[in-house]
């Protein structure tokens, strides 16, 4: 299968490893363009898997892995339509994105997110679909959604609940604080912490190791230990859409989009 070069993503198979690269300025915000390309990737993934033993997801941009949802696009689009239509549009977006996330989560071959810099909101949710997160020392993780009057909507809470203790999830969600790669490893989120700029190299070495094992055994192990929390994921969409209809969200988005503060990313 030919490599793909889109506006938000690219992918190729190198040494029997699928490399999915985020590459949309300013910091890989997930909006409609990114979603379309993610859907395209999800549709060809079964074919790619036939020629690969692992998948690595990383960002080509210096700012980091991914800053999350494209809030500017979300705000602008919601302003162009009636509230009811805006909520329906958000629901449709989330359902499409959840389908992609679930496809990545259920991918039978081992998957690794190699992250650096900003890993916020939807970016963290994307990384959480992977089996392993390898973080360099510059990585900083955060679920800032509550400051907008929302909860994470791309599957973050169900997957975090699956992978970590509930107390940790509450801390990260209810404070909205960001934390570094050392903390991420302490709480069991990151499997390895490496020097600045080394995450991709280590991810490739890790993928090569995982590629030594029988793929059917690896697939069976994954299916057994990493169940997809479908019920919670569906409930998350419902809660997100309920909250999205509240006036506080529009005010929060407006404040973010129009902010000239030097610290808009601080909750």
């Amino acid at each position: 299968m030919k490599p793909f070069q889109g506006q938000a993503l690219s992918w190729a198979i190198k040494d029997r490893v699928i490399e999915l690269v985020l590459r949309r300025e300013p910091c890989n915000e997930i909006g409609s363009q990114c979603l379309e390309e993610l859907e395209r990737f999800a549709s060809v993934l079964p074919e790619l898997e036939q020629n690969a033993h692992s998948l690595i997801l990383y960002s080509d941009l210096a700012c980091g892995f991914c800053a999350g949802a494209d809030l500017r696009e979300l705000y602008q689009r919601s302003q162009e339509m009636k509230k009811k239509d805006a909520i329906a549009g958000v629901r449709k977006f989330l359902e499409r994105l959840h389908h992609v996330m679930n496809t990545l989560d259920a991918c039978p071959i081992p998957t690794i997110a190699a992250v650096h810099g900003i890993v916020f909101g939807g970016g963290l949710e994307l990384a959480l679909t992977c089996d392993l997160i390898i973080a360099d020392k510059t990585a900083r993780f955060c679920f800032p959604e509550l400051r907008l009057g929302l909860i994470p909507g791309f599957g973050g809470i169900p997957r975090l609940k699956r992978d970590l203790g509930n107390a940790v999830v509450r801390d990260l969600l209810l404070t909205g604080r960001s934390f570094n790669s050392t903390k991420a490893q302490q709480i069991g989120l990151a499997s390895q912490v490496v020097a600045e700029g080394e995450a991709l190299r280590v991810a490739r070495a890790t993928a090569a190791q995982m590629g030594k094992f029988d793929r059917n055994t690896a697939a069976a192990a994954k299916k057994f230990i990493k169940p997809i929390p479908y019920d919670d994921l569906r409930r998350e969409i419902e809660i997100f859409c309920e909250l999205f209809s509240q006036p506080a969200v529009e005010a929060g988005l407006k404040k973010f989009v129009e902010s000239t503060s030097a610290q808009p990313y601080l909750p």
Partner: peptide
């Protein structure tokens, strides 16, 4: 703000 967070990470 993003660069400030990278400074915060370095300081931590």
């Amino acid at each position: 703000s993003l660069q400030a967070l990278s400074l915060l990470t370095r300081l931590e």
